[in-house]
Design a protein around this nucleic acid. Structure first.
Lengths: 220, 220
DNA sequence: ATTACTAGTTGCCGAGTAA
DNA sequence: TTTACTCGGCAACTAGTAA
């Protein structure tokens, strides 16, 4: 989404939160400090992208922010929340560290994944994942992930092999180290295993050995 | 502040919330989807405006958002909070309605004020103010207003007369009607009086008569 | 390596105006 | 009245490159 459209959507939210008066492009323009023409163009673009819904009224039109548009604002809100209030965990799962066969490292090291981690997560990950097997008590809570925000990592094909898409959940390990849970959409592990990606070697940083328990706090 | 700079500041907040790695313009650029040159320019502009502070590191540089920059983000955050969670009152004052001599209406009706109300508050106010005298119990709380956000209305000169600047606080009257408390910087009333501006006639809308008590909830 | 200047291009903004 | 198209101008972007 183009930056200035995001700003317009954000400022539009202020304006249209009072739906008592119908809006005109002139009206909105004067509040946003734009020309009528620019507002018209922005409204058209926002509507094309499904962010707002407009309906003609006798004078002017009503502007409603759609669910898709609200999602966009929600994202902004939660990002700001995290920045301003500090990361807060919403859901904590617990499990045991175990050693894999290095597949995690193999997948993570694929340059196309690496570039995405760098761009979308903001760091170059340590080339390997920490495997955690969820305790029975916490396993049933895995479904709660459905309601938690994630960052999408795209799949790709490299010659004959295809590498799947995945989701990265922002987490805090043992209330201390920022990391991401990487959930492949088709995992080579079962539902009870989470793979954790971090900018540092988590085993060293937290002094972990196989069988140790770690707490995985999911951040909004 | 220019819209695209605000977006850059906002997105920078995401990036720099992890100050473990020093940042490079190339790095930030790839995350924001800009070129290295554009990021360089934005960082320069943001620093000139006092929004961020940069320091050279061995490779790249550290970027810290200053208090002024955080204020900007805070504003965004609270606006989104209001839009998403709905208006929440932070402080409620109580007082009695009384009749003025119509000075409120005279001031409010000045076209230059009116245009500002329209643009900054988002509605054309009913041409008159509701006067409320705070009860003794609540009078001491008036100073709490210092910490609450407001919208600035500029003063102006109209020939010989000069009309002062003022502040508009977003309020909810009797938990029901959205309105603004207009606090002139030099008021013709004492500290115990608040003047309330709304898009509707509050006396009619809330069926108020002199001597009735109203609750004024200040919104974040 | 890094940041940032210069030059040229892209594309957003707004005046005029049609619908 | 209102919204939205055309088009000229200029602001912001990126490529190249210096420091």
């Amino acid at each position: 989404m183009k930056p200035w459209l995001l700003i317009t959507l954000y400022r539009l939210a202020e304006v249209t939160s009072r739906p008592s008066e119908p809006h005109t492009t002139v009206n909105i323009a004067s509040r946003l400090g734009f020309s009528q023409q620019t507002v018209s163009r922005h409204l058209i673009e926002l509507e094309n992208q499904g962010m707002i819904k407009r309906e003609k009224a006798t004078r002017g039109e009503t502007v409603r922010i759609t669910e898709k548009g609200m999602n966009e604002l929600n994202k902004m809100y939660h990002t700001l929340h995290r920045v301003i209030e500090g990361p807060k965990t919403e859901l904590t799962l617990e499990g045991e560290v175990f050693s894999g066969l290095g597949e995690g490292a193999y997948y993570v090291s694929q340059p196309i994944y690496m570039r995405q981690f760098q761009e979308k997560l903001g760091f170059t990950p340590f080339p390997g994942t920490l495997n955690v097997r969820l305790s029975k008590k916490h396993l049933k809570d895995r479904s709660l992930l459905e309601s938690i925000g994630y960052i999408e990592i795209e799949g790709f094909k490299n010659g004959a092999r295809s590498f799947g898409a995945g989701r990265c959940y922002r987490v805090l390990i043992n209330e201390e180290v920022e990391a991401f849970v990487v959930a492949a959409l088709r995992s080579h592990y079962g539902e009870d295993v989470l793979e954790i990606l971090a900018p540092v070697n988590l085993r060293e940083r937290l002094n972990l050995r196989d069988g140790d328990t770690v707490r995985i706090g999911f951040v909004r």
